[in-house]
Amino acid sequence: MHPAPSVIIFTTFSGLGFGLLAWLGFDASPAKGWAAFWWFLIAFGFACGGLISSTFHLGHPERALKAFTQWRTSWLSREGVCAVAALFVMGLYAAALIFFDTHIPHLGWIGALLSLGTVFTTSMIYAQLETIPRWNTPLTSLLYLSYAITGGALLSGRVTIALILLLITTAVQLLWWKQGDSAFADSGSTLGTATGLGDRGEVRSMAHPHTSPNYLMREFIHVIGRKHAQKLRIISLGLMAVLPVILLLLPFTHVFALLAVLSHIAGVATSRWLFFAEAEHTVGLYYGMR
């Protein structure tokens, strides 16, 4: 899949944002007033920034409201609904904290669940796609949720929890990669099944329909070398988990904490780049190039 910057920014930041919102919502003794303002500003900034960025790849962003209508079938629609609900609830919750110095725990829990729900719906947009076997697994939701919760913990300064979660997320990520690497082969789709000619012999693409590429090839076919991918995986894990863990284990300073957060974000973004770049769509079969 084409690793479009807008979707990478979207999934990275909205994940972190909603993860942070979830932690803020569950927090039994949250900050209030100005202190709360800053936390929520970061959380909303990430969540909304991500969402807004996701509209950049729309052909008709001005019609985006229509996307709320199909929540009964469409995960993308559900994501929209969920995100708005989460933002709304968390907005009320935050307003109460910031302006009225009031903590309404139930509202926080609902908001937190909606925030995690948003991350889940996002993950389902990808996990539902049978066309992309690497994504088409419940592990994708687990991956998105663990990233969100971990990032949220880190952002909200829960050092110990963050340390544990970073390890868990690393494990999930490794598991997801391992599963993903054989997913296409396991799915059973080949150029043979794609053309129905497989039982006659080896099928090979001899010529593309057009000599120039097209939308499909641009969108769905992104060939990334295995070596290159391995390197990026290591970098991603290093930035996402290893470096933050080291920084967090060092005596606490704000600089280290900030560095840990920045490193984590960069790691997440790299992982997301790989999430798309390594994903192979069945359309690629038709072009003999996945």
Binding site: M1, H57, L58, G59, H60, P61, R63, A64, K66, A67, S74, L76, I125, Q128, L129, E130, T131, I132, S189, A194, N214, Y215, L216, E219, F220, H281, T282, V283, Y286
Partner: peptide, 25 residues
């Protein structure tokens, strides 16, 4: 009604949908 999100093209296994670059649908 189409917002040009492209998701349907992602969901189609066959490459039967193309987002028009001029019109965004």
């Amino acid at each position: 009604d189409c917002i040009g999100c492209g998701l349907c093209a992602w969901a189609c296994p066959y490459g039967a949908r193309e987002l028009d670059q001029e019109e965004g649908v």
